[in-house]
Nucleic acid binder design. Sequence first.
DNA 1: ATCTTGACTCAAT
DNA 2: CATTGAGCCAAGA
Length: 105
Amino acid sequence: MDNATEPGKDQKIWQVVLAIPPGKVAGYGQVAEMAGLGRQARYIGRALGKLPQGHAIPWYRVIRSNGQIAFPQGSERYREQVSLLEAEGVEVVNGRVAMSRFQWR
DNA sequence: ATCTTGACTCAAT
DNA sequence: CATTGAGCCAAGA
């Protein structure tokens, strides 16, 4: 068997992210653990950043573990994420999401 | 192979 | 609540 990096890691992440229901959000570290990556929370962001166009991955449902957006407030990415979140019924205040919305189970 | 950087997290101050 | 330092791991130069 190949011991090289498994060519399904990104896919696993996408699956986990896709498993997040609308109106809820999850943290990077959380997604990492659910995907079986352990502490590779940073890998999640990297994988999402590598996503090609036309993807169906709700990357905007993934935020920091403290409920804050991973982008600096006022940035284009930030506003895009907030717009998408609010479109799903998630309340974003001062770059933060209520802990009630955090995690879905 | 080494150094730097990053859509991270946590604890201490 | 802001800052700092350390831990963490993988990709790019």
